[in-house]
Design a protein around this nucleic acid. Structure first.
Ligand SMILES: [Mn+2]
Ligand SMILES: [Mn+2]
Ligand SMILES: [Zn+2]
Ligand SMILES: [Zn+2]
Lengths: 136, 136
DNA sequence: ATGCTTATTGCAACTAGTTGCAACATTAAA
DNA sequence: TTTAATGTTGCAACTAGTTGCAATAAGCAT
C-alpha cells in the first residue's frame, strides 16, 4: 500500500501540499529537515505555511510513513520509511551518520521483554558514539 | 569528587546561580524540566535569567554531571547523575517512566563494536514502548 | 454540476531553547 | 586590599516548533 492509499484508507484527504511533501520525502535519499522541506514546498506553493509542513510530518510520523530523529544537529530530521526498518550510528566527533539494520536491536528487545515485561517500540534510533575513523 | 570540585578543577567559576541549580538538581529525586528549575532559581534570585539556567545545564551535561532526556513530553528533562548509570523505559500509552540498569545495554554495545567498529556512548536513554500494565 | 460535511490550511501568537554582546563578578596574583 | 584577567550573567533578539481559530477546500451524496 502506498502512502497515498494509506492516507485515504484512514480517511485523510489528499491535498496538493501533502502530495508535494510526500514527493519531497520520497525523492530525498537520506535525511531532511522540516525547514528544507518547507522551502521546497514554498517553491511550488508560495503561500504554503510552515505549520502545514509540521502538521503533515506529524501525521506521517503517526502513520509510520516517516521517521523523525535528532541526529545531533539543531533541528530534527525526517526520513521516508520505504523498505527496511533501520537505525543510525552518529559519530560525536566527525558527525558521520552510519546505517544499522534493525536486527542489531533484537537482543535488547528480547531482554527488555524478559526482564521488564516491557514491549519496546524501537524505531529509527540514533545511537551516539565514536566511529571507526575517530577512535584512539 | 563533588560537582562543586569538578567545576573548580576544570577552571569554571562557582556562582550563586550555579550553586542554586546544583542544589535543585541534587534535591530533586526524579526528572525535572529546565523551566521548573528556572522558576525555583527565580524564587531565590528574582532577576536570574533563563539563559543562565540553560547554559548551566548545558555545561553540567558536558561534564557528565546531569543527563538530559526527552521523556515524551513537550520539554526535555534533566536528571542529576549521582551514582548509577541508568536508562528509562517510557510507556507510550500511560506515560509511566521505569528505570533500567545500564547493564541491559551491554549486549547491544558489544554488538555495535564487533559488527560496526563503532564505540557507542549510551547515556540515560529513553526507550519508548508499552509497559506491563498497558499491553493487550 | 451542486451542495454538504468536515478535514485541512493560513495566520498570528505562542512555547522551548539559543546566541551575541556589553556589563559584571569570581578568582588569583601583586 | 587592589587590580587585572577572564569566566559568567542579563538582556534582547533570534530559531525551531506548536496551537487555536476562522476561512477554505476535499470528498462524497444527490
Ligand atoms: Mn534514517
Ligand atoms: Mn533518569
Ligand atoms: Zn567519526
Ligand atoms: Zn503503560
Amino acid at each position: 500500500m502506498s502512502c497515498f492509499e494509506t492516507l485515504k484508507a484512514k480517511g485523510y484527504r489528499m491535498t496538493a501540499e501533502r502530495r508535494a511533501i510526500l514527493e519531497i520525502l520520497h525523492s530525498t535519499d537520506g535525511h531532511i529537515t522540516a525547514d528544507r522541506i518547507y522551502h521546497q514546498v514554498r517553491a511550488k506553493f508560495p503561500k504554503a505555511n510552515k505549520s502545514t509542513v509540521y502538521r503533515t510530518l506529524e501525521l506521517l510520523k503517526g502513520l509510520n510513513l516517516v521517521a523523525e530523529t535528532n541526529l545531533g544537529g539543531n533541528s530534527v530530521c525526517y526520513h521516508h520509511i520505504e523498505q527496511s526498518h533501520h537505525h543510525h550510528l552518529v559519530c560525536q566527533k566527525c558527525g558521520r551518520v552510519y546505517d544499522v539494520d534493525a536486527a542489531v536491536f533484537a537482543p535488547l528487545q528480547e531482554l527488555l521483554i524478559k526482564k521488564y515485561q516491557f514491549v519496546p517500540d524501537i524505531r529509527h534510533l540514533a545511537i551516539f558514539g565514536y566511529c571507526p575513523k575517530c577512535q584512539g
